[in-house]
Each structure stands twice: as structure tokens, then as C-alpha cells.
Design a protein around this nucleic acid. Structure first.
Length: 497
RNA sequence: GGUGCCGUAGCCAAGCGGUUAGGCAAUGGUUUGCAAAACCAUCACACACCGGUUCGAAUCCGGUCGGCACCUCCA
């Protein structure tokens, strides 16, 4: 089965074929670790996580590299504000980042290289560029000479002549006077006293923003590899510059397929650190299950904008994220369904009954959706179909004399497994997930689980004595506080509205 | 100024030239001591607007309107 992905380089959907059959080498630009990850970061890394999971599920051996940029101007600035050493600050936020991604069930990359561990590679690459005449030193800095690379602009589809220099209003720090051309960018920056620095042929300094990715991806994946990914905002200048400095040095295409994910938007604007309109992953995890955040990312195609809403209280404080809460309810449904399937009694299973062929096709449909430029919303539509069919089976098993086909159950379980391996959904223990969500909601409403349970016991006694009036009174009383009772074959359970 | 993206039924969201995408909400039904959950049905002859191409267009082309992004901080 062939995968198709949108290639930013050609701006078209392309059939994805790894250079080495059966093996895929992927590099995804990781974060600059000067703060906690926000939802935009989570979106990006969940998208590439689904991609990696899907490629692996398709039988490919994937080598997944995602860097950590642990030295940079913003890290230095934040560290000095906090009175912390830049490296300590970076280490702290690296750990937080890894923890956040783990909570949204992202598989760890095979390698997570750090800039500070690749200074020799970075310096060697800059020297190589200088030797080729593609870079020049100026007063302790080294710049890439854009005019020496005729292909400059091929990724972002723009011409150097068309660039509006200073459009973002960030020029004038003195760098432009050292540059031969305004589009030239720093490969190496001389350090100021007190800043972290490394020795180099140009004096003490630190790497520019783009060179580290070129050095690290080529170090770990070779001078040419299959797929390079990142956020849409990295297309220009970051990835354009990566291409320029890598290809100017090697003469080979850096990556064949360039994939970019869209932004999370707030009030139709991009969520970003600079606009200050972001929510950290941690803030969200306090209100919803991390897996619901993951599900939320899957609800929209990865290249389209994903718009985030939230509710506010009287003091203007954030009280919730309705869309993500909705995703949590979908996961509630998913886990309840899984639990229902798991609890079908052996006596209710008919080993010889036939299986609807549609049930067996579910994993293939899931896979086909992802083959098509990682169409996650369609994968969720397949998921909805699975859950409906699974509940149908569970309903059948709970009917008088009802029996379900062993083959159907096997097919449903296989589909659940595919859901976990391809989308990373439903990997938790159903009971644990459902109990956790319920407890958190009860806490948010200020309800005591023990009191609820006590009332359920009282109601059970009332019902046993056929005192339905009292039973209904308890139901109504709990309902007023937001607790809904559900009488099932195995006793009464409850949930929060 | 340059380069792109988006506008789909009450809300969210697929779609890439011809067959019911899907979800949420709402309403009706099956089920239940009463409920909920679950399932079924309806809402759905929707595709910003105006032209054009085509046997056929949400989908292709041209234009208009509205919104957004990038043009050296960004996932």
C-alpha cells in the first residue's frame, strides 16, 4: 500500500518511496527549550507521531530523529531573567517537554540530539561552507552567502528579490551591517561576555539558529534522507536555510519530502509565544485528559488550521476547553465500548456464527485513510464506525438468548489494536481511564464520591423493596448536583454531566 | 509589495470531476419499574458570491468579497 504525502517542495501530493526500500529516515524539528510546550507544539509532535506510527504499521523500519535546541538567544535571555544558567534552564524544559509528549502518548524518537552535543559537527559544516565560498566570516560572526546558492527559495517558493526585508520589524541589531546581502543569515555568532560559548576558528561563539539542524540531521541520517517535518512557520526561513547550507555543502538534496503541519489558532490568529495567546499543554492537562488533547489534534487534517475555543469564568479566568472536553467524551465512549466488549461472557459467544465482512475491513480502512496524506479525520470516521459496530455486538450479547459471533469479536479486537498502533488511541486501561475522568469531574464540581456511593446503596435497597418513589427521589437529587445514575446488569454506575 | 492558505448544512469537519464521509447538538423510535448508556431514524436535495469549461463542478479555470499565514522569534 503506497503512502501519499503533500510535499512542500513541489507543493503537490506525492507517492512516498523511501530511498532505501523498507527503511525510512525522518527528521522532525524539535523545540527550542526555553519554556513549557504549548498546544501548538503538541499538535506538531502528535501529527508526526501518527505519521511514524503509521509508517511502522505499514511495515517500514522507521528511524525517527527529533532534535532539542538547547542553546539559543531566547534561552540565554530567559535564563538571565530567571537568574538560572542557560544550560540548566534548557535541561529543565527538555525534561518537561519529554514528559508532556509522553502524556499525549507520543512514541519517543529513536534519537533526540541536542545542539550542545554537536558543536564539532556544526563547526565542521561551517568550515566546509567557508571552504566552498558559500559562507564568509565577519568580525567573529560567520554568515551564509545566499547569492552563492542559486536554489535559494525553492522550498518556500519565493525569490530573494521578492523578499521584503525587515517585514517582521526585527532588523537593526547591527547584524545587517556585517552582511553582504540582507538575506544572508548567521551560521556562527560571536558571544558576548558571560554568554555560553564554544571555541571556534572564528573565536568564541555559538551556532546560529539554522545550522544546528543541518549538522544534526546529516550526522544521524546522512547527507540525504527521506522526510523532514516541522511546523508551517519553519518553512521560511528555517527550512529554506537548512536546505541552503546543507545542499551548498554537499551538493545533494537534503530531504526529498518536506512536510509541514498547520497552526493551532485562537480567534483566527496563530497561537504563538510572541502573541502571548497560547495555552501550555500542562494548563490543559489540568482540565482534560492528555489523551483528549491528542484526540483533538486528530479531528482536523494536519495541514489545515485547528481553531481552539475556551470558556471563561466571571473573573475572566479560563474554565474549560469545550472542544477538548468533547474529545474526552468521545474517549469515554471508546473506553466504555472497549470495556463492554471485554466483559462479554463466554456463554454469550457463538464460535460458529458468521462474521460481517465489514468488521474485518476496519483496520485496512484505517490504514488507507492515513495513506492518503495522513487523513486523520477520516481515520476517526472509521473509528466511529468501529465503536458503533462494537456496541451493536455488546447490545446483542446483553439481550435475552443473545449470542455474538466469535469471529466478530476477534475482528473488533483487531480493529481496536489497529487504533492503538496507528493513531495511538485507546492504549490506556479502560477502567483506569473512566475512573480518572470521573474523579476529576467530581472534584471539579466539588462532589464527594463517597456520598454518591452511599446514596446509590440506599437507592439499591429502595429498589429492592420496590420503593420506586424513594429511588426516583434519589435519582433526581443526584441529577440536580450533576450526577447521572445508570442502572446496568452489573449494578448501578454513575457519571457526571 | 511578494508568496501561499482558507470560506461546506445549527456547530465542528472530510472531500481533489460523477456512488450516504464522520462527529456534536436537536427531534422521534427501540430498550428501561423510571432513567441513562447503547442502537436505529430524521435534520442533510450543504458547499462565500459572479461568470466560464464539461454530458456532469463543493471539486477545474477567471474574477469578486471576507478571513488568515509567511517575508530572518515561532511547531
Amino acid at each position: 500500500m503506497a503512502q501519499k504525502f503533500h510535499n512542500t517542495l513541489s507543493d503537490r501530493l506525492e507517492v512516498f518511496e523511501p530511498a532505501e526500500p523498507g527503511k525510512v529516515r525522518i527528521y522532525v524539528c524539535g523545540p527550542t527549550v526555553y519554556d513549557y510546550a504549548h498546544l501548538g507544539h503538541i499538535r506538531a509532535y502528535v501529527v508526526y507521531d501518527v505519521m511514524v506510527r503509521h509508517l511502522r504499521q505499514s511495515g517500514l523500519l522507521v528511524q525517527y530523529v527529533r532534535n532539542i535546541t538547547d542553546i539559543d538567544d531566547k534561552i540565554i535571555k530567559r535564563a538571565s531573567e530567571l537568574g538560572e544558567s542557560p544550560l540548566a534552564l534548557a535541561a529543565r524544559f527538555t525534561a518537561a517537554f519529554q514528559e508532556d509528549l509522553q502524556r499525549v502518548l507520543c512514541v519517543a524518537p529513536d534519537l533526540e540530539p541536542k545542539v550542545t552535543e554537536h558543536l564539532p559537527e556544526i563547526i565542521a559544516l561551517i568550515e566546509r561552507l567557508c571552504a566552498k565560498g558559500a559562507a564568509y566570516a565577519a568580525d567573529g560572526d560567520v554568515y551564509f552567502d545566499v547569492q552563492a546558492f542559486p536554489d535559494y527559495g525553492k522550498l518556500s517558493h519565493r525569490k530573494v528579490a521578492d523578499l521584503e526585508f525587515g517585514a517582521s520589524g526585527r532588523l537593526g541589531d547591527g547584524e545587517d551591517q556585517k552582511k553582504r546581502h540582507p538575506a544572508d543569515f548567521a551560521l556562527w555568532k560571536a558571544s558576548k561576555p558571560g554568554e555560553p560559548s564554544w571555541q571556534s576558528p572564528w573565536g568564541p561563539g555559538r551556532p546560529g539558529w539554522h545550522i544546528e539542524c543541518s549538522a544534526m540531521c546529516m550526522r544521524h541520517l546522512g547527507e540525504s534522507f527521506d522526510l523532514h517535518g516541522g511546523g508551517l512557520d519553519l518553512v521560511f526561513p528555517h527550512h529554506e536555510n537548512e536546505i541552503a547550507q546543507s545542499e551548498a555543502a554537499t551538493g545533494k538534496p537534503l530531504a526529498r519530502l518536506w512536510v509541514h503541519n498547520g497552526f493551532i489558532e485562537v480567534n483566527k490568529e496563530k497561537m504563538s509565544k510572541s502573541l502571548g495567546n497560547f495555552f501550555t499543554a500542562r494548563e490543559c492537562f489540568r482540565r482534560v485528559e492528555p489523551e483528549a488533547v491528542r484526540y483533538f489534534v486528530l479531528t482536523t487534517h494536519y495541514r489545515a488550521p485547528l481553531s481552539l475555543d475556551w470558556t471563561v469564568g466571571e473573573k475572566g479566568e479560563v474554565t474549560g476547553f469545550p472542544q477538548i472536553e468533547e474529545c474526552e467524551r468521545r474517549l469515554d465512549y471508546l473506553y466504555s465500548t472497549k470495556q463492554r466488549i471485554a466483559s462479554i461472557a463466554p456463554g454469550r459467544i457463538d464460535p460458529s456464527a458468521p462474521v460481517e465482512p465489514e468488521l474485518r475491513e476496519l483496520p485496512a480502512r484505517l490504514s488507507a485513510a492515513l495513506d492518503d496524506d495522513l487523513n486523520m479525520p477520516v481515520a476517526l470516521a472509521v473509528t466511529a464506525d468501529l465503536l458503533k459496530r462494537a456496541n451493536d455486538l455488546a447490545d446483542l450479547a446483553s439481550r435475552k438468548q443473545g449470542k455474538v459471533s466469535q469471529g466478530a469479536l476477534t475482528a473488533v479486537r483487531a480493529a481496536f489494536t489497529a487504533l492503538g498502533t496507528e493513531l495511538g488511541l485507546g492504549l490506556d486501561d479502560p477502567q483506569a481511564f473512566l475512573a480518572r475522568v470521573r474523579s476529576r469531574r467530581a472534584l471539579a464540581l466539588g462532589l464527594s464520591e463517597a456520598e454518591i456511593e452511599a446514596l446509590i446503596v440506599e437507592r439499591f435497597e429502595a429498589r429492592k423493596n420496590r420503593s420506586f418513589a424513594r429511588a426516583d427521589e434519589i435519582r433526581a437529587q443526584l441529577l440536580r448536583t450533576g450526577v447521572e445514575l445508570m442502572d446496568g446488569a452489573e449494578g448501578t454506575t454513575w457519571r457526571l454531566l
